[in-house]
Each structure stands twice: as structure tokens, then as C-alpha cells.
Amino acid sequence: MLSTLGCASGDPVTGAPAPLLDVEDLSISVRRGVPLVEGVSFSIGAGEAVAVVGESGCGKSLTSLAIMGLLPGNLQRNATGRILLEGEDLSAKSPREMQDVRGNRVAMIFQDPLTSLNPVMTIGAQIMEVLEAHRDIDRAAATARTIELLDLVRIPDPQERMHAYPHQLSGGMRQRVVIAMAMACEPQLIIADEPTTALDVTIQAQILNLLVELRRKSNLSLMLITHDLGVVCRVAERMIVMYAGSVVEAGEVSAILDGARHPYTAGLMAARPHGSFKRTGQRLVDIPGTVPPPTSRPKGCLFEPRCPRAQEKCRAVRPDLAADGAGHAFRCHFPIGQGEAHA
């Protein structure tokens, strides 16, 4: 009844046409036998927002760096699989060709806006740099476009502010600058790696709203990396849950949050301090144990050592990613049944 799912194959989940980004069987390892990311496949349609969720160290950031072609050299050499952007294989591109993709067709927003901006360059110069790298544009036009971008991300006085240095701006303003930088060349896809984690709670909401709004305005695709399920349901249509380098559950956000099939996803949801989508219990539940290190991953199901539902089969055989009819995929021998998720 359950069929093995290539989550990437022209995914009917959103009804989107040919996907913009297609990650096929991506594996990244430090060396033979020490995998950090194993067989990750997913796709992102044009204009779609997909959240990638998981604890730190689950491989979500590495996956995003792999898409950008920014893996450290030793990992790059040990990366296999295909990353297709509009059908073009990025992993086959030369470093020079990847330069034309980065910042131009795919842009990235990093976690900490203070450290991700160059402290000795004005923010205007840092934005103009992207334009000059990818567009045949003269100085006046670049300046005009920079002011336009700063205005787009709601930075007041853009003419003045473009001469400011990062340390002269607040955290929220800096993250707006980073977003403006990512938007500069009107990319098709923006990868946002924990874009609000380093910010104050009140600022987080503003930045999220900005991202949602920009996405609507420019019809861009968004890959949002986060560990915050609250952020997921505000921004994304589809989500991918990763655990120990593998995709363990994928599907529509509403479907997963209503009824997680994988015990790990269920655990993540129960571990939230306030179940804002569904009030379950007063007690904060956590998942016992820790993520197995890449050097000693279990032979069977990766989650088995921490799983409350684990059985003999889980220890012996690693489950495949399988989907129900609605495109909700999970990697579990004994998935949680419908309605059982928050029991």
C-alpha cells in the first residue's frame, strides 16, 4: 500500500509544474563511512515556500550549502547526487559557472546579520557589489537600484543609510540589508538559513512578515531552514523534516502539523514550549537521548535508539521513504496512525 517515494518526481503535492529546484539523492560525507547527509531528495516548485526542519546538526544547513556550491573543499569532494535548477545540473557546473548562479539565480540569507556583513564596508557598497558581479550596470544605475532595494526592505532614508556601516545599524536593520542583498538580482530562489534565530522576538515577526510579503510580490521560491515550527506554519506551504542527515518526513505543512506520521516529527511538535497550533498538554516534553554522531549511526532506523515505538524490525532494517496517497511521505516502519499523533 505504501510505495517508495522519489519525493522529487514532478511532485504533485502542490500541483506545481516542473520544479524549480530538484535535489536528487544528495549525500555528503566527511570520508567513506562517515555520512553527514544521506540520500536527501526533495524539490521546490516555482513560487513555492518549503521549510526544512530539524535539530542542529541534522544536515539542513549542509544541504543548503551544497545547493549554493559552498561546501568546504573536503566535503565538496565527497558529495554525490544531483542538484537541478530548472533542469540544469548545478553539481556538474564549474566553480566559475557557479559564481553566476550564486547571488543571481539563487541567493542566501544567513543566520546572524552582524557577522554575515563585512564590518569595514558600507552596506550600500555590499549591495552594489552583487549588482556589479551579475549585471552589466553602471555606477549611477547600481546606486539607484541599491536605494530601491533598501526601500523595498523598508529601511528608512535609503540615500543616507547606504553609506552606513553594519555596526551603525540595529540587528533587525542589518537583517533587512542582508535580505536586500539577496533580492538584488531578483533571484528565483532564496535560501534562508535560520533568518530570525539571532534576532529579538519582536523583530523576528517583522522580518518574517517582510519575507512573506517579498515572496508574494516577486513570486520567488523560498527554502526556509528553521527549527521553529511556528515560523514554518507562518511562511511555508510544504515542509521537510530532517533527522541525522536524512529526510524522515515530508509533505504539506498543514497535513504534517495535523497528523505527523513519523515519531520524530511528533516528538518535535510535542517539544514546543507552547503548542500554538494545537494545545496538547501543559508539560514540556522532550525527546530523550541525542542525535547519533555521523561516526556511529545505527544500522537500522536512525531514530530507533530514541524512538518510543521502536521494535525489532527498526533495529535491523532501515526504512525507506514512503508516501501515502496525498504525497505525505515518511520514513518509518510503524508510522503513527491518523489522529494518533498527539496522543
Binding site: L70, R102, G103, M108, F110, L117, M181
Partner: peptide, 17 residues
């Protein structure tokens, strides 16, 4: 190894730059 150097790479700047 600092973040802003990674940002510069992510912007698609040449390695020289």
C-alpha cells in the same frame, strides 16, 4: 572562516574579490 566571507561567496563574487 568568518561569516561575511561566506556571504561574499554566496553573493557570487569571484574568488579574487
Amino acid at each position: 572562516h568568518l561569516d561575511f566571507v561566506r556571504t561574499a561567496r554566496a553573493k557570487g563574487l569571484s574568488e579574487r574579490r
